[in-house]
Design a protein around this nucleic acid. Structure first.
Lengths: 121, 121
DNA sequence: GGCTCTTATATGATATAAGCATATATATAA
DNA sequence: TTATATATATGCTTATATCATATAAGAGCC
């Protein structure tokens, strides 16, 4: 059993997809930039330790029509594939927020119960 | 891409392990009972839709020494494999709480940023 | 020019986990 | 005797995560 919050298995794939959708909705970005913006959230996310996974997740988002892409060659250096949110992506995110709120409640319940357990000892 | 909070991919495996450790720490239980106690948390958890996955996760917890088991044949009906937390399990849970608190902060940040995005539109 | 570093995207191979079906078995209720 | 609830467990297939590697542009250095 591996640890938590140390880059392996901290979240599930679905959550990473939501994080990416939010980041892209805030501002269109390319994959490499998204990896650094993800780190700013402060909790390690699975499949992101290695860039390969991130690109694969972005591909699935693109294939399912939640994001669209443009190649940006204006900056010099290697070409950048810039992801932007679609209407479908925004409404998917909106629908998914229900689960995010539920998760928050859930985590709070978890903490509450853990602390009750601690007191009991 | 499948949905969230509908039994598929809502959490990661590592979180399920934590939930199970907390439940078992609160009260020793057998697998079948744990599946119903998990549902009481209100958010669907991956690998738990089907009982098979739950038993496999419990096996890994047992193999790694975080829980110990006893067979209970006192109640009638099929024998029950009762899981109880070990010292190692408790200290693992304690260490992991750091990640749980971080997740809470993280989710709050997510919600905050989503709501800021909504206002901007 | 050749060397290394950072930025940037992507795929191959393998290990782990999730999801679905199924097997086994005891007791109770209809 | 048939069905239902309880109870544990494994086989198989697909999906995901992890690790390694390939490709390539530009920048800085010597």
């Amino acid at each position: 059993m591996r640890g938590f919050g140390r880059g392996t298995g901290a979240f599930g794939r679905r959550w990473v997809e939501l994080y990416l959708l939010l980041l892209i909705a805030e501002k269109p970005s390319h994959g490499y930039e998204l990896s650094t913006r993800l780190k700013d959230f402060g909790v390690m996310i699975p499949g992101i330790g290695q860039m390969g996974s991130l690109y694969r997740i972005l591909s699935t988002l693109e294939m399912s029509g939640l994001v669209a892409t443009d190649w940006d060659i204006s900056e010099g250096g290697p070409a950048r594939k810039v992801y932007k949110i679609t209407k479908e992506g925004l409404s998917f995110l909106e629908d998914a927020m229900e689960s995010v709120y539920a998760l928050k409640t859930n985590i709070e319940k978890f903490i509450e119960r853990y602390e009750a357990l601690k007191k009991r000892e």
